[in-house]
Design a binder for these strands. Structure first.
Lengths: 346, 346
DNA sequence: ACTCAGACCGCAAACGTTTTCGTGTTGACA
DNA sequence: TGTCAACACGAAAACGTTTGCGGTCTGAGT
């Protein structure tokens, strides 16, 4: 088990100086053809590769970007990471991930761990707890230290940085519009509490669509679910709430849910109540995940183009990192959604 | 925008030497109470944190582990990453991910990028192409350079390193056994081509269960699907093959599929052919993902405890990294599966 | 007054690079 | 033979840490 070979070892072995080796490997004209060949041959033989850490220290850049997301076992977020990884690789960067688990303190800790030289910039989506507490000091601190941040999906206006968001309200509006043109008269909304920015925006889209179509919103048709907890675990609670919603509003003939899980749960409840989909009730979800695609019946849904979000976030960040002039002109990229029609609507 | 503060700056500001600052911050008794307080106060004020890269260079360890997986938009793999991240965080390590996209060359490139000092060790699962080509030189090279590797799930015997695998054959055997005790007489197997190690093992488990129950295997009941391509995209092809399987074997009353997608596809086909689940045909899948849980009917499945796999892989790697004696005694941890019974079986 | 032990602190090396600036050796040319 | 450019290479600094060692005080003990 031989350790990785260094410039110093090559130098000693070939009886030249370290600088000569370095220059020879970088094809400097300062070095004679002879020595250059000799060094390069030797380096190739021993499979020399410059030590990344040393380079990072010298260049004061790591060519690594840090990604912090609330959870990774989630179609949307993993798709975003895939997008990030695509362009990061293409542009010579590595990706290091941190999971906040929707917790404020883990988000802070993770950022501190990475902000001390390990990475050049952040791409992140805020944890629910952070959104709830509205404590954003850690973002401002890292930005003040000259480390750029790109926020995606769950963003917050108070922070000045690049952002990539989806047109949540428009997407929702279109979805609800679709339900209305499909003949739905009493459309329920299953959404999150308002502190989740995307939930709020999607709620607005729902209301907008009703307004346009001159339908009076009924508060009894709007169910705001509070899932501070990680979603996977308390589905039963969700289903219970949805069942109450249905039972209290027998005339519901359409459902718009702000995420996949809520939509699937609504489907399950509807089935339990012997409602046929899409004949008796039509359902549309948000986020085009694997569940929507393979559900039975498959779910009409609003696609957020997660991979594209990741790609654009990465481009934005790397552009910023490699920009010479220090002119920080932050931009917000808005990605349009797309309604993917499947079997849960007529 | 002030850059991150360094020891040198603190030293200059307080008119002491760099070493004094360093020692003061680490509470060395060499430094007087006075200066210690002064330095620490100043450091706290300016929110000093030691530069990670410099530390990595000095200590020749990065406290970072590299994870290379075939794809991340995949419940199993993301769950493994979550497990890895759990213990990595707990033990003070960061996680940097690389995606091979099931491609051999991307796997090699990714490993080379990370092996040059960026990380202390690897946790990885082989790409399908690597398994097909059987070219493992990159693993041996990194191991020879003193960088430990832990392989999980898709492993290969030729490489000497720690491994974490699931008891594929046993899990499959139990599943098929379950079908048999549930009354199934003609059980189909939907599996992968043999070069995928786990597919092969699960096939063996299927055969074993038949053997134990004195049922003669029929080759016409075994469907080996070749999906070199990333799975998401060509589901139609899969369904077509499965439909042929059903049509050619009208007496099929049980299906064991080596992954979730195949199982779901089988369900879809069965439904299309007006077969009731679980009355006419019972189905069991492998991998307890989100699809199985929320399918309709929900899918009985063999859980691999993905998160636990990730955790154990990380423990194994970090133990190895932090072990003083160089005694490499590689171990293979076998994780037992668990049959999770849901609605797709009686 | 001399010695000596602490107490307190700085120097310098080391980790592995890259790069600037020198320095010594050629050969050509006057 | 002396001068000077071209050529080939080395020394050293820098990135930001940690740490062994040596140095300079002060005060106490003889």
């Amino acid at each position: 088990m031989k350790r990785k070979i260094t410039l110093k070892q090559i130098a000693r072995e070939l009886d030249v100086s370290i600088s000569t080796v370095s220059k020879a490997l970088r094809n400097s004209i300062e070095i004679s053809e002879d020595t250059r060949q000799k060094v390069q041959a030797f380096a190739k033989l021993y499979n020399y590769r410059p030590n990344n850490i040393a380079l990072s220290l010298k260049n004061r850049r790591t060519k690594t970007i840090g990604v912090i997301i609330p959870e990774i076992v989630h179609h949307f977020f993993s798709k975003v990471i895939q997008g990030i990884d695509n362009v990061a690789n293409k542009r010579g960067y590595n990706v290091i991930v941190g999971l906040s688990n929707e917790s404020f303190s883990k988000e802070v800790i993770n950022m501190q761990m990475l902000a001390n030289g390990s990475i050049d910039g952040f791409i992140l989506s805020l944890s629910k707890e952070t959104l709830l507490l509205q404590d954003y000091h850690h973002f401002n601190e890292t930005i003040n230290q000259g480390m750029p941040i790109v926020m995606f999906d769950r963003v917050v206006n108070e922070i000045l940085c690049d952002k990539v968001i989806v047109n949540d309200s428009n997407g929702s509006k279109d979805a609800v519009n679709k339900l209305i043109t499909n003949g739905c008269k009493h459309i329920a909304l299953i959404t999150t509490k308002d502190y989740v920015s995307v939930g709020k925006l999607r709620t607005q889209g729902y209301l907008k669509a009703l307004e346009i179509n001159k339908i009076a919103p009924e508060s009894s048709l709007i169910l705001k679910i509070d899932d501070k907890v990680v979603s996977e675990d308390h589905i039963e609670g969700i289903e219970l709430e949805i069942e109450k919603l249905f039972n209290n509003n027998k005339k519901i003939d359409g459902v718009f849910a702000v995420n996949e899980l809520y939509a699937i749960s609504a489907m399950k409840v509807a089935r339990k109540l012997n409602l046929n989909i899409p004949e008796d009730v039509q359902i549309i979800g948000f986020t085009d995940g694997v569940l929507s695609k393979h559900a039975n019946p498959s779910l009409t849904t609003v696609s957020q183009h997660a991979e594209s979000m990741g790609e654009q976030s990465a481009e934005l960040l790397i552009d910023n990192l490699e920009r010479e002039d220090e002119e920080d002109q932050y931009q917000t990229v808005v990605i349009e959604t797309e309604l993917i029609e499947r079997e849960s609507t007529k």
